[in-house]
Structure formats: structure tokens, C-alpha cells
Amino acid sequence: MAGELTSAAVAMLLESPRTFDLFSRELEQDEALLRRGLHPPLLVWWEHAERPAVVWGWQLLQRLAALDIVAVPVSLVNDDAAEALELAIRAEGRPGRFGWDELSAVAACMRELGLEDNDPKLSALLFGRPASVLREVRRYEELPPPLQRLVASGAVDLKSAERATGVPEAVLERFGAGAEQLSFSRRREMLAMLYEFCVVGRRETEAVLALLDEVFAAPDPLSALRAHRYPRLRELERQFEAFCECYASGSGVELSAPAKFEGSAFGVQFQFESAPQLARRIRCLQAIERNCDELFRLL
């Protein structure tokens, strides 16, 4: 009877089909509590199988078996397969926070049970948004292994990984090892640039690996990679910095260039609190005026 709470032998349950053995999160329950039976009941599907199938609680079951506990409370599930799967996912209690290995297992389970991929409740529970479970998992499974690992570890998102398809595995491995120190958005930008180096620019793998070694040794790897990807823009920035250093350094005048040197106007900004300070700023501005052709050549 659905929802009925009863007891089942651990040994028997361990022999049951593993159709719903989907989740890999480590169980954190305290051993002493487990020995006292202070844990949730397992969900067991008894309807259409000769033997009962554990729908949820495989991790718990294995912990209990390891503690030599012989019987366990179970809640019976008599719903159809789709609802059993939904219950299993609900019982995990972490909507939108499943790993890709778990999502792959759910997709395999759906295929095995012949479940349709059109249940918005299921996708909301799994992804926290409407999506086709099987299609999303297929996108993940079609990635080459190093990109799968990056996605599974949460280092990059699925879409960014798909865009990086074609980047040699050696480059991805090196990137994965070095990119841990970067923020998510920086990893994403860096991966996109690696795609450009390897696939669009057709740089040799060895050259890109050497480049990665160099940029990961730099204090700011993303900026270092950008300087390689955009050398002429970097040179404009360098010339502008040199101009500022030469004519404005220490003057209290802040000179700014249009973003990416796209536009026509430079900016100056300063404050002063005494006549000598103002005189110093004005001398700086006069030096800028005398040499401003150097600036306009940057645009």
C-alpha cells in the first residue's frame, strides 16, 4: 500500500535491482544515530517487480549494511515508474544541485524504464528550470572526456564547454589543472580564448601548451592570455600607459582613453586644494597638450 511504513531485510534489499541507484552524494549521518535507527526510511518500489526495488536510499542502505544492521524501515511506493523516479529525486532534497554523473544516471534510468522526457516537474527538480532531461544529458555526454570533467567539477558551464569542442585534450587537461585558481567567469573567458588559439587560429598544440605554462605562471593568467590574444590592443594600452607615466605621473592629473581605443575623446580629471597644486596640474596639462599627437595616433 502506497506510503505504508514497514520493515525489510537489508540483505534482501541489497540484492534488489539497481535501477534507481542514481545518486552519489556522500551520506553524512552520524554512525551512532544510524545504529539507533535515526534516519529516514528507504523508499521501496514493490509494484511491478518480483523483488522490491530500492527507489531511494542506496547510500544509506550500504552504510547500514556496513554497520551489520539487518533490518531497515522502508516506505512502500506503489506509483508508476515515472512517479517513483520523481519521488527518488524529491527524496534527495537538492533541486537544481545534482552532479552530471547523477544526471547521466537519471537519464539512463529513464531510458531503461521507457519514460517520456516531457515532465516539467522532473526537469525543475533536476535542473531548477524547464529543460529536456535526455537532451541536456546527451549534450553533456557528447563532450570529450576532459570537457566532461570540467563541467562535472563545476569549473565551466555546459554551454562554454560545448563552445570549446575541438580544443585538443592535452590543452584542456592543462587548462583544467591551472584554472582552479581562477573565478568562474575568468575560466570561461580563458576557455573561449583557448578555442580561438587552437581551432580558429590553428596554433600547434605544443605552442598552446607552452603558452598556458607561461600564463599560469603569471600573477594574472587571464590578462597574460589576453595580451597574447590581442597583442596590438595590448601595445596601444602599453603606449598609453607610457604616455601617462611620462607626462602625468605624480601630477595628480588622471588621464583616460576611450574604451578599447574606440572613439575620439580622451579625458582628464583632477582636483586641487592649493594654488601650487593647481599650478602643478596645469603644467601637466600643458605637457599633455604639447604632446597630444602621440595620444591621437592611438585612435
Binding site: 575541438g166 580561438e196 588559439f197 581551432v199 580558429v200 587560429g201 590553428r202 590574444r229 590581442y230 597583442p231 596590438r232 590592443l233
Partner: peptide, 8 residues
């Protein structure tokens, strides 16, 4: 992917 896209 085209070579000309690998410009700045």
C-alpha cells in the same frame, strides 16, 4: 572557424 576570425 576561419583564419580571418583570429584577428583582434
Amino acid at each position: 572557424p576561419r583564419a580571418y576570425m583570429f584577428d583582434e
